[in-house]
Design a protein around this nucleic acid. Structure first.
Length: 725
RNA sequence: GCGCGGUUAGCUCAGUUGGUAGAGCAUCCCCUUGACGUGGGGAGGGUCACAGGUUCGAAUCCUGUAUCGCGCACCA
């Protein structure tokens, strides 16, 4: 027996060495896998590219653990397995981080630096961040094919983005339109509907008349926007106001001349407030839609800095919050204010910057999700394609299934996707202008005087292409080589990015490739702290996976994240739990020591042994049953059950019962019983270690090196051994 | 408002197709220092949120209620 077993298992001196062995073997790369896998069916998975803004947190550790389990299991099952890594440029998030840093350290804004210099700085940051993330993923033991690493903003992915954009533009699915969009005054950019978070706050609902001459009272939480009103809307069946419909009024409201037309619209709720509302087409998307229906003029009174551009001197140039007070003061002074009530109200916040969203009319690029087009001889829309990909029998399977409902619900409410951003870091919109001319193409058009659109694309536009842009698309030769890997076998990611990413991948893939991006989606939940609180900077309750790995080993961290944590469910992790699995790794280590010692060097392992004693016949049957059971559960992605069962089997059946019983048999049993027991102990250990490998790759690989197994050779690694069914 | 999920031992959670309630941690007792930077054996502790229903039988299926969390919508 190797002397290493005389000491307790030490992940620190083991893990990096083992990882190096794996990498040297080349087995992370599907093309370098053994013969058996070359002939196996393909298994492919893309890594949800971590944002280059950050470092690894427990959530990413969970993701990596689940995915590595899937990948290692597939490899052991003999599949031609590839796991493709990469990072996400995370446009707004990254630019915001770097800008903030430069502002803090140098007191300079992005405009002081200029586009080119800022991009250079971000690239440096992104590269460093990428290196950190990659290092962390190695520490976790990820068996990922580094030779295929991609970046959502590299050359190849930019080519994919331009190709996708142009095709969608040519097909009329991407259009430029002037609409009220979500403007983030803090980030100085538009954002999509999904990048908004809502916060309930107490606010005041004011009821007032625009002037003494206008008979209808309206209610609003934002009096300052009323300077931009161009209509008063009432419900068509509301008898109180029927006789006003069609009438027009002029007034000077807080120093601003306004012209209002009374319209009837079914979207007005007669029960709310006075049953009449002021229509502000420029600063509310609902009102914008109403204005479209009634052909109302649009009047912008708030600018990109959330400051007023109209009104009296007390108002013009002021921030909206101050302007609100000024308008209310004016209303009181004029005796127009009728009521002031406290209400709870949702305000829209930009997810990345925390800025309060200001709806503004802007000329932006959109993906038309309801735009009809021809596909396979039928008229369809992107929305329909997205729906069909998950409905239907041959469709994408979502685990847990309940998220399908959430997905469909989201699609029902989906509006056109605003994809242009007024930031510099990202894929530039591949459109050029010359006067009134517009050109969309892969490269700048020939001739003088063309300038490229200043905007960049939503980061999710490029991540939407991820399953196939990482496989070479749209380069035909390159993509052909990898064609067997798409649709990818499975997508594993956090349930929180179902809409952002999963849905967008389905959109892009079904549209551009006419096939689903993956066959199965496995969603994991949020990792919380030991008390069940969300991990957040302000709480300071972040547990750094790297610290935990240093202390307890990657195997322990992986197990602690996996055991008992079903798909889609939030989980709690604390140091105690991690520690418990470090003890388990050591337990397995010691069981190995005991078995190897008890069996002795002179016994040859015989995998075909069948002359079991009556006691061992029971044990071997149980082992077979267990392995069959967990294999089925592995195929059903029930890793939380398998890990728990293996833990319980190893510790409480093998160690507590079988090993204790063996002491007596080996000392006092008949020769037949002793031979049988020794063969059983070896077989049990070998198969148990193999089954544990996807979960605890390091300790099992380290033990494997000293086990008597069938194809013993220097290159024999557990990671490519057969799954022990 | 609509939808989704949770509610099981002090804590964290399992409970696969309905068949006498489980694990880990914690607590208490006993044993163990020749596999185990300890380990083993045992004990206490739950009207499975509540109320109905289906069934020979319900933690499990159905209906409703409460409560917590989340998503979406509304947000004048």
């Amino acid at each position: 027996m190797n002397d290493k077993f005389l000491k307790p298992y030490d992940p620190k001196t083991t893990e990096d060495r083992i990882y190096a062995l794996w990498e040297e073997s080349g087995f992370f790369n599907p093309d370098k896998l053994p013969e058996r896998n070359q002939k196996g069916e393909p298994f492919s998975i893309v890594l949800p590219p971590p944002n280059v803004t950050g470092v690894l947190h427990m959530g990413s550790a969970l993701m990596l653990a689940i995915e590595d389990i899937m990948v290692r299991y597939a490899r052991m099952k003999g599949k031609k397995t590839v796991w493709i890594p990469g990072t996400d440029h995370a446009a707004i998030a990254t630019q915001a981080v770097v800008e903030k840093d430069i502002q803090k350290k140098e007191g300079k804004s992005r405009h002081d630096l200029g586009r080119e210099e800022l991009l250079k700085r971000i690239d440096v940051f992104a590269q460093q961040s990428r290196d950190t993330i990659v290092k962390q993923m190695r520490k976790m033991g990820c068996s990922i094919d580094w030779s295929r690493e991609a970046f959502t903003l590299d050359e190849a992915r930019n080519f994919a983005v331009r190709t996708a954009f142009k095709k969608m533009y040519d097909d009329g699915l991407i259009y430029r339109g002037n609409r009220v969009v979500n403007w983030d005054p803090k980030g100085q950019t538009t954002i999509s509907d999904d990048e908004i978070e809502y916060e309930t706050r107490k606010t005041k609902l004011y009821t007032f008349k625009y002037s003494k001459d206008i008979p209808i009272s309206i209610s609003t939480t934002r009096p300052e926007t009323k300077l931009g009103d161009t209509a008063i809307a009432v419900h068509p069946d509301d008898a109180r106001y029927a006789h006003y419909v069609g009438k027009e009024y002029d007034a000077v409201f807080a120093g601003e001349p306004i012209h209002l037309k009374v319209i009837a619209d079914r979207s007005v709720e007669p029960e709310f407030g006075t049953g009449a509302l002021g229509v502000t087409p420029a600063h509310s998307s609902i009102d914008w839609e109403m204005a479209q229906r009634h052909v109302l003029p649009l009047k912008q009174v708030i600018n990109e800095y959330a400051k007023m551009t109209a009104g009296s001197d007390a108002i013009k140039g002021k921030k909206v919050a101050e302007a609100r007070e000024a308008v209310v003061a004016w209303l009181k002074e004029q005796g127009l204010l009728e009521k002031e009530e406290d209400i709870e109200h949702n305000i829209s916040i930009a997810q990345r910057t925390g800025g309060v969203i200001e709806p503004l009319p802007k000329l932006q690029w959109f993906v038309g999700v309801n735009t009809e087009f021809e596909r396979d001889g039928k008229t369809t829309t992107l929305k329909t394609l997205m729906k069909e990909a998950v409905a239907g029998s041959s469709a994408i399977q979502v685990i847990p299934e309940r998220f399908e409902k959430v997905y469909f619900h989201w699609i029902e409410n989906l509006r056109d996707w605003c994809i242009s951003r007024q930031i510099w870091y990202g894929h530039r919109v591949p459109v050029w202008y010359k006067g009134a001319e517009l050109y969309c193409g892969m490269e700048a058009p020939k001739g003088e005087g063309w300038t490229q659109d200043e905007d960049t694309l939503d980061t999710w536009f490029s991540s939407g292409l991820w399953t196939f842009s990482t496989l070479g698309w749209p380069d035909e030769a390159e993509f052909k080589k990898n064609r067997a890997y798409h649709p990818t076998t499975i997508l594993e990611t956090g349930s929180d990015i179902l809409f952002f990413w999963v849905a967008r991948m389905i959109l892009m893939s079904t549209y551009l490739l006419n096939e689903a991006p993956f066959k199965t989606v496995y969603l994991h939940g949020l990792v919380r702290d030991a008390q069940g609180r969300k991990i957040s900077k302000s709480l300071g309750n972040n547990i750094d996976p790297l610290d935990m790995i240093a202390k307890y080993g990657a195997d322990a961290v992986r197990m602690s994240l996996i055991v008992g944590v079903g798909p889609g469910n939030d989980s709690k992790v604390g140091e105690d739990k991690i520690k418990a699995y470090k003890l388990f790794a050591n337990k397995v280590w010691n069981m190995t020591r005991f078995i190897l010692t008890a069996v002795g060097e002179d016994v040859t392992y015989d995998p075909t042994f069948t002359a079991w004693s009556s006691a061992d016949a029971v044990h071997i049957q149980r082992l077979n049953e267990l392995l069959n059971e967990i294999t089925k559960e592995m195929d059903e992605f029930k890793f939380y059950l398998v890990s728990e069962k293996l833990y319980a089997y190893a510790w409480h059946e093998v160690a507590d019962v079988i090993l204790e019983e063996s002491k007596k048999i080996l000392a006092e049993g008949s020769p037949e019983e002793i031979v049988s027991r020794k063969q059983f102990l070896l077989q049990c250990l070998i198969r148990m270690i193999a089954a544990l490998h996807p979960f605890m790759p390091y300790v099992t690989e380290e033990i494997w090196a000293d086990l008597p197994h069938s194809n013993k050779s220097d290159k024999s690694l557990l990671m490519v051994e057969k799954w022990p069914v």
